[in-house]
Write a protein that binds this DNA or RNA. Structure first.
Lengths: 142, 142
DNA sequence: ATTAACCCTTGAGTTAACTTTAGAGTCAAG
DNA sequence: CTTGACTCTAAAGTTAACTCAAGGGTTAAT
């Protein structure tokens, strides 16, 4: 009903040392210990670690992630305003990232398509040129 | 018709030293120099630097970014297969990032919504719980 | 009962990505 | 013609995020 650190490490593909590091940094709550001093992680630790790893790969710093994980609605609604504000701010950040990624995606798609040897190849040879032509189109409101 | 390093720095909000560092690392092509030894950057450097900064904030390493920037369709189609393969691989990476961000977005939206003091508040108190309930729903094919 | 494979802590070492420092030349304004 | 704001290089320093090493206890299987 709980995982030793090596098991959690395998389930998440996260280095054992990194797990202990995340605990020191406050990203993972200190798990209960056995009489032997071993850490026994509850199941939901798997999800928490995966969340951390995903968020990291999306360009969030560990400090950002700690903040994301700390967001929670309280029984007493006193902190609710604060929570909502943090959440909305993160939502805006995420929305911006999504649209930037979509832009990159479109541009890269064009480059890839240009590889089909079509006549238009020469136009969008690099991702920067593809982005450029997109930007130009946007400015001319096409 | 060209920018000195300080100008490029202001236009991109990128530290002067960082610009020189990117040049050393091969992310920015060495710009032409004046007789004084000064760097004179062509206009499109602005876009290139901005691209680097955006990609960085989306979790790409400088090595990733160098690869993205190096993708280009050649006149001779010999390298076209390679280019396409790299591009497709990057496209997959980007697509994955987008869907992970969307998942985070939905989860965070729920947490934020729970702040409105509705009855259901207690259910999705944290981003992890919101993600959890999403995953459960997905598994039950709802 | 030993041995391999775990786990613990503390502290030092590493890597990527900057950032600062030092020392020196350049340019534009008054 | 000097003063303040630029620019240059080379090298050292910093920060975040790990990662490893040393030394020592624990557990499971032979």
């Amino acid at each position: 009903m709980s995982y030793k650190i090596g098991e959690l490490s395998k389930l998440t593909s996260c280095n054992i040392e990194t797990l202990r590091y995340y605990e020191r940094e406050g990203l993972l709550p200190p798990p209960p210990r056995g009489n032997n001093g071993y850490r026994y992680y509850p199941q939901d630790s798997v999800q928490r670690v995966r969340f951390i790893l995903h968020a990291k790969s999306l360009g969030f710093s560990l400090a950002d992630i700690a903040e994301l994980l700390s967001i929670q609605v309280d029984k007493n609604a006193s902190t609710c305003g604060d929570v909502k504000q943090i959440a909305e701010h993160k939502l805006a950040t995420i929305a911006r990232k999504i649209s930037e990624l979509k832009e990159m995606y479109r541009a890269l798609e064009k480059v890839s398509a240009a590889c089909d040897g079509s006549e238009a190849s020469a136009e969008h040879c690099t991702i920067l040129q593809a982005l450029e032509s997109d930007a130009a189109r946007a400015e001319k409101h096409l």
